[in-house]
């Protein structure tokens, strides 16, 4: 009984706060900008309060960070390709490059 009441009050408090904060659509650009430079203090505070009441935006912010790491992992891999179906230089292009190198090396 008592814990039900607490849960209800907590939900009301979340709604109360959420109604006074910027909507998700407004804060998604802030979450992106935040990866590159600090936000103005007012926005930073509003965003953190928004995180308190919104799981979606917390996921979103974590996902942007994860995406940054994923892209860096992918784009910096200069390892030999495992499977043979990776994009490769065509035989033509290979030949052209070798000839260009030979020409210039003379």
């Amino acid at each position: 009984m008592f814990s039900d009441l607490i849960a209800k009050l907590k939900l009301q408090a979340i709604f109360w706060l959420a109604r006074r904060l910027p909507v998700c659509r407004e804060v998604t650009p802030w979450m992106s900008e935040r990866l590159d430079q600090p936000l103005p203090l007012g926005r930073e505070i509003k965003l953190r309060l928004h995180f308190l009441v919104c799981d979606f935006c917390r996921y979103y912010q974590n996902q942007l960070l994860a995406l940054r790491n994923a892209v860096q992992t992918m784009s910096n891999s200069t390892q030999e390709p495992d499977p043979t179906d990776q994009p490769r230089l065509s035989a033509d292009a290979r030949e052209r490059m070798k000839n260009a190198l030979k020409d210039q090396d003379r």
């Binding site: 959420a18 909507v23 998700c24 659509r25 407004e26 919104c54 799981d55 979606f56 935006c57 996921y59 979103y60 974590n62 996902q63 994860a66 790491n69 994923a70 992992t73 992918m74 495992d82 499977p83």
Partner: peptide, 25 residues
């Protein structure tokens, strides 16, 4: 709740450690 994320289409939890997945070809 207009312009808040939609319950079905909004971001989902990618799990605690997505970094492991990034190595996956």
């Amino acid at each position: 709740w207009v312009d808040h994320f939609d319950f079905d289409r909004g971001p989902i939890d990618w799990g605690a450690n997505p970094a492991r997945i990034f190595e996956n070809n």
